[in-house]
Computed example of a mutant assay.
Amino acid sequence: MTEHAATGPVTRSMAVPLGAFAAGAVVAVLLGVFGRVHDPTLSGTTDLGFRTVIEMKVVVSTVIGVLVVLQLVGGLWLYGVLGRRVPSWLGTAHRISGAVALLLTVFVGYSCLWALGLEVGTLHNGEKVPVRAVVHGVLGCAVFGAVVVKLVAVRSRRAPGWFLPVAGGMLFTLLMVVVLTSAAWYVATDGWPSRAGY
């Protein structure tokens, strides 16, 4: 007897994605509120040997961007979209690279919110915060809401079939915009960061 026959058909429910999107929105808003009320400080952050925390974040964010692209390719391959035979190691590699990308994202997100906060409106010197920085900060908070949604989508057996690809696509898009409005912008403006002392 198959497992499906033993347990009966799985009932798909819209409550799963709705609950996940609600929980993700709460996480994103709470991070945004923290970013606004927290007094930014470099104390408690690390530069990993780079000249500044920002330069460290550029390098780690670039690694995240590469891992996210690999996640997209791996996901498309696993779903059969690429039309190639799926190797046995791909599922494990996809999960490991996703976990590494998530850990690095938490590390960079912590550094951003702790050291810079969420900048919107006007800076202390009276200058307006650039639109790029506002978009980066707001969508950076949204990334962690999307992480919640994606984790629910991966673990839920009761969610509709569209939920996992939509959750993965949303997380991919948000992460890529955040990387493009930070690391890619920095490299285009100031060049590739160098390690301190080199």
Rank of each mutant, 00 (worst) to 15 (best):
V152N: 01
L174M: 07
C112P: 05
F163Q: 07
L103N: 12
P160Y: 03
M170S: 14
G169M: 04
V154G: 07
V129S: 08
Y110F: 15
L102T: 15
N125M: 09
Y110H: 11
A115N: 15
G109T: 06
M176Y: 08
V149Y: 00
F172C: 06
V131I: 15
L113Q: 00
L104K: 15
E127W: 13
V149T: 05
R132K: 10
K150N: 12
A99Q: 05
G140V: 08
A133F: 08
V100E: 09
V120M: 02
P130S: 08
F163T: 09
G137N: 03
K150E: 13
H124R: 15
G126Q: 13
L116P: 11
F107T: 15
R155W: 10
F107V: 14
V149H: 00
E127H: 14
G98S: 03
G109K: 07
R158D: 13
V143W: 01
T122F: 11
V134Y: 04
V147E: 01
M176S: 10
V177W: 02
G169I: 03
V166K: 04
F172P: 02
G126T: 12
L175H: 08
W114D: 09
K128S: 15
L123P: 10
S156T: 07
V108I: 14
T122A: 14
G117E: 03
R155E: 07
W114C: 05
R158L: 03
H124M: 13
C112F: 15
G161E: 10
G126D: 08
G145N: 02
G126P: 11
T173D: 10
A133D: 13
S97G: 15
L174K: 04
L174V: 07
A101D: 04
V143C: 07
R158F: 05
S111V: 08
V149S: 00
V106R: 09
V148T: 09
V135C: 06
C141N: 05
A99L: 09
L139D: 03
N125K: 10
V106H: 12
S97D: 12
V135N: 10
A101H: 05
V147W: 01
R157D: 13
G140H: 04
V135F: 06
T105H: 01
R155A: 12
T105R: 04
V166Y: 02
A142M: 07
L174Y: 03
G168W: 04
V120K: 04
N125E: 07
P165R: 10
T173P: 12
V166I: 11
L151G: 10
L123E: 13
C112Q: 15
G161C: 03
R157A: 11
A167W: 02
V106I: 15
P160D: 06
P160I: 01
V143K: 02
V178G: 04
G145D: 00
R158T: 11
S97A: 14
G117C: 05
A153Q: 06
R132W: 05
G137A: 04
L164A: 09
G109Q: 05
L139V: 05
C141L: 00
L175G: 12
L113Y: 01
H124P: 13
E127L: 15
P160M: 05
M176E: 12
V147Y: 00
R155P: 02
E127G: 11
V147H: 01
G169V: 03
T173R: 12
N125P: 12
E119H: 03
H124V: 14
H124I: 14
A101M: 10
W162K: 08
T173F: 12
L104E: 06
K128F: 11
F172S: 05
A142C: 06
